[in-house]
């Protein structure tokens, strides 16, 4: 029981981290809170499903295409909607919220509901770890999650675009004077965020069904993790994912699976009471009081 909680808790934590990374990445760089994130996640799921079942593509191709298209959607949303609202935070929030809602509810209207909307697991096998049977998909999730986080770290430190990301995250005006096209980098950041979400969808969704509700769940989880960890902080995302992930798993094991949802709500309320800017919040003290 204990080992199972330990292992499944880790898987659960990685799922949360995977889901939150993309949202956090976009926010950390361009300051855009992409409330359409959950919708992009589900879109990637449905796109992969369509590629597999309607076009008959191999899984790898369908998944790659889905990730690319989702990232492109992110870029287009930024380029044609958000760029016009640059600086108007309220409008940005409302616009991404509107886009997300329109997408999700459109899926619902088109009838993407039901148990047939599932993605196949990539490797149908299971492994025995310390007496606990874990299926290969969950191990894959942990591997992908870890490598995406590592990739992000390498990318922001060792590539040109990545460094431009960091420059903008620190100070947009200075970045402008350094000859960085901030609009372009922001577009890329939204695309990246959406792409990360899409990758998360492709590896996580085989565990369940693709559904509209999943879009809202993902958004709620991503926001919860970011609020607890501190908006814009990658370390915060990882720590908060572990905290919430394990807390959920412990609740599910020792209390009841039904109470899992309460964990994130309680975590948010507690963190807001004791440290509103989150565990690793990068908000400056002055802003924290506002």
């Amino acid at each position: 029981m204990f080992e199972a909680t330990l292992i499944y808790g880790l898987v659960n934590s990685v799922i949360l981290a995977l889901v939150a990374l993309g949202f956090n990445l976009t926010f950390g760089i361009s300051g855009v809170a992409n409330f359409a994130y959950g919708a992009f996640y589900v879109t990637a799921g449905f796109l992969t499903w369509s590629g597999l079942n309607q076009l008959g593509l191999p899984f790898g191709v369908a998944a790659a295409l889905a990730v690319l298209i989702t990232a492109l959607m992110g870029a287009l949303m930024y380029r044609y909607l958000l760029l016009r609202l640059r600086g108007l935070v309220v409008s940005e929030v409302i616009a991404t919220f509107g886009v997300g809602l329109a997408l999700l509810e459109l899926f619902r209207y088109l009838g993407f509901i039901g148990f047939e909307y599932t993605l196949p697991v990539m490797i149908d096998a299971s492994v025995d770890i310390a007496g606990v049977v874990v299926d290969a998909q969950r191990i894959l999730i942990v591997v992908v999650g870890a490598s995406l986080a590592a990739l992000l770290w390498v990318f922001t430190r060792h590539t040109r675009t990545g460094r431009a990301f960091r420059a903008i995250a620190q100070d947009e005006h200075t970045a402008l004077t350094l000859g960085i096209n901030t609009d372009r980098v922001a577009t890329i950041s939204v695309a990246f965020g959406a792409g990360y979400g899409a990758i998360a969808a492709v590896v996580i969704l085989p565990l369940g069904t693709i559904s509209v509700g999943e879009g809202y769940n993902v958004l709620v989880n991503a926001l919860a993790v970011c609020i607890v960890g501190g908006l814009g902080s990658t370390v915060g995302v990882i720590v908060a994912s572990l905290l919430i992930g394990y807390a959920q798993m412990i609740t599910a094991t020792y209390v009841d699976t039904h109470w899992m949802m309460i964990v994130s709500l309680v975590a948010i309320l507690i963190i807001l009471l004791i440290k509103p800017s989150g565990l690793f919040g990068q908000q400056k003290e002055l802003e924290e009081r506002i």
């Binding site: 935070v89 908006l231 309460i262 948010i268 908000q283 506002i290």
Partner: peptide, 17 residues
Amino acid sequence: RLRGLYFAMVTLIMPLI
């Protein structure tokens, strides 16, 4: 106590949860 964005995020989450 926080900037407006947090208000948007938390109000979005709460009814769903």
